[in-house]
Amino acid sequence: MSTHLPRQTTTPDGQPSTDADRRVAVRFSDVTHEYGSSGRGDDRTVTALRDVSFDVRAGEIVGLEGPSGSGKSTILHAVSGLLVPAEGSIELHGTDLTALSDAERTRLRRRHVGIVFQRFHLLPSLSARANVALPLVQAGVPRKTRRERAESLLEEVGLGDRITHLPGELSGGERQRVAIARALVTDPDVIVADEPTGELDTATGASVLELLTDIGRDRAMVVASHDDETLAVADRVVTLRDGRVVVNEG
């Protein structure tokens, strides 16, 4: 099974890049966010993030760890542009997500961010190929190109013989591979993964991790997990407590 997804990172003069050359893919600057505020003043609010600042460079895998409610998922949603923090800025390759409209954030997400969920979130009535090709429909890619792209990615994640299967006909590990192929279909610069092995047994989780690290080799990847084995693949782990960054080290 070939799980290697080649993606050469080079400098403008064609030489292989070094750490120093790598551009910042994601930059959090003093990000603060609260949940539960309705604006009526009498609701209790929960602060999910407080003054969070960190960078993720292209080709770098950053792990997010911390107990439930520490803000890991909020960071992933903010990187994806699914939520806009109350304060601070989030830059994706130099573009400040907080300054964009909803439609612009949606377009940026489709083009530059791939999301892998803990529970896969595949559409049950669509085949593996149609699930992988889903983001390309919105991009307006012709059907033939969509199919070719989806089939090639399914081949690469080792599911070349499951192309027409429905999610209900696939195992947990296979579903997560389909989800990973879907996250890659627009060739994004940033991958966010929320507990990608949380629903899988140890052996399946290990193979999915191997696939993720493979694809993360030349992209920026942010992985949130409670699992030490998952976090072990990260180049750097950011530890969160009560919405604050308490450790940020490689």
Binding site: Q8, A139, V185, D187
Partner: peptide
């Protein structure tokens, strides 16, 4: 990258609507 897949380069509005109808 040079060899990367760029969906915006091949996409059109008509194929998008056709695709949405298909989905």
């Amino acid at each position: 990258d040079d060899g990367s897949f760029d969906p915006d380069r091949t996409g059109t509005r008509r194929t998008r609507w056709r695709g949405l109808l298909g989905v």
